[in-house]
Nucleic acid binder design. Structure first.
Lengths: 127, 127
DNA sequence: GGCCTATTTGCGAACCGTTAGCAAATCCCC
DNA sequence: GGGGATTTGCTAACGGTTCGCAAATAGGCC
């Protein structure tokens, strides 16, 4: 059965992700690895990202250009505020949204099951 | 200067989009056109979609698989509730979100400039 | 420490949605 | 109907992502 190995590429990628609180593409991570002389194949980066996602340690976002990007991320339900200048990601809880469920039901007969929210602006350092 | 032509492919695609209130991929639209014997090149579908987007008549969304999908859509600021069963899209105004700006500023020093929201659930017909 | 087997990696080719180049067709206006 | 700008169709290229398979690695066991 599926025993899980801790390998060098996985350790490196996990470290990079928890250090950089920004959405990074697979190619960007691959680039950072090269910069520190670590030879890891791009396909390994993709597979590791998929693996970390399955473990709930990373969440993914597809940017408007269609490129998938990744941040390290605790598992519980929350949203992200993304700085347009430096890319920094802040965790946002928004219980405010639950309230909208009632309005959707009343106006459209729509039963709300889930939602996705992203905030864009400037973080404290870039304001 | 850029005079704008109304052509057969553009008319067909506009009609399909305003008829189907669901997010459709370029390939899906191309398929619908074929089904009605209209011969339009896939690249024309892409160009028309880009054109309609620029005119503010269509809005795009990149699905988790990275495929871009399109709906006809009025210009003013609102969000979409997407039925998970039939794909139907309802327009949702959510002034409730404006309130979150204050909390973001207070907790993280984050200056909110914009947001993106999507709701998922079941529409009245599919509930 | 060395061995064994399942897991993971690296490489390259394949894939798929999307974009670009260019000649032919189309639209609009006079 | 004629003429010039815009749009289309076709095909090839592109960029990100996935896949297949043999070589390398992790980790338990003697």
């Amino acid at each position: 059965m599926a025993t899980e190995y801790v390998t060098r590429p996985r350790a490196l990628i996990s470290r990079i992700l928890s250090g950089e609180r920004r959405y990074l593409s697979a190619a960007a991570i691959h680039g950072l690895l090269e910069r520190e002389q670590a030879k890891v194949a791009l396909s390994t980066v993709y597979r590791t990202l998929e693996h970390l996602q399955a473990k709930g340690q990373v969440s993914a976002r597809v940017d408007p250009a269609g490129e998938t990007t990744y941040v390290s991320c605790a598992g519980d339900h929350h949203h992200h505020a993304i700085c347009r200048v430096c890319g920094k990601v802040e965790d946002v809880d928004c219980s405010a949204l639950e309230a909208i469920g009632g309005a959707l039901k009343a106006h459209h007969g729509f039963v709300l099951e889930d939602h996705a929210v992203e905030f864009f602006g400037r973080c404290s350092a870039c304001a």
